[in-house]
Amino acid sequence: MSLIEARDLSVRYGGHTVLSHVDMSIDKGEIVTIVGPNGSGKSTLLRAIIGAVPVASGRLIRDAGVSIGYVPQKLAIDPTLPMTVARFMSLPRRQHPADVAAALEQAGVPDLSTRQMTDLSGGQFQRVLLARALLAKPDLLLLDEATQGLDQPGSAAFYRQIEDVRRRLGCAVLMVSHELHVVMSASDRVICLNGHVCCQGTPEIVASAPEYRALFGTGTQGALALYRHDHNHSHDDGCDHDHGHAHDHAHDTGVIPLHQTTRDKVH
């Protein structure tokens, strides 16, 4: 039985469709990562799961009694709002100080409880957010680009923390990430999203899927191609040659997608 399952899920935002016909699920204890270009609906999928955006069609099935811990993409605390770490941990429900201390310990920041939230470094802040999510004793931890704004060692350390938490608590993890190299090593399963589910499976399967390569390329581990290919692409061209070169797109077999630009046509 999956903890969360999306069936034919579509989400619309002010008249345009952000997610269409998404099928995905996550099982107990899995680490699943969602990758995709900017604007591909990764964050929207997580926000739909927590109920922050309405579902336009399809179904979102949540197993009875599943507890979710959510770590948002960014949290800007207004400087006029005084907030100690301990007080933040007790929002919205008051928590026992021992539980707060244990959660901070698990997230790797045991000594911060009396500090002001606005005085924390980026890495400390994200760990406090993680600790607060752990207080819900989550069966499923949702992380929305939780390492945004951290440097490479910082984000690597953060992902190690996530794996450690998963090992200790046995919770499933569903996260959105831009950092493909980390994703590919740390995930049980990867979902490649671009408004719809392009492909999903183990990191090895996804990395070799033509859909994934069409989006991210191969040679650069995707880091460069990520920002170049945000147009819709077609899957049914059946070609499997290397798409990793600079002007790569998967349409040179004659299938011209709707959103193809003139630049692409000339090419």
């Binding site: 927590i50 948002p72 949290l75 929002l91 919205p92």
Partner: peptide
């Protein structure tokens, strides 16, 4: 009070807590 504070901090955080 608690719900207001949570919603003031971040709307998504509120949603995730059922507020």
């Amino acid at each position: 009070w608690s719900a207001l504070l949570t919603a003031t901090l971040n709307p998504d955080l509120a949603h995730a807590s059922g507020i």
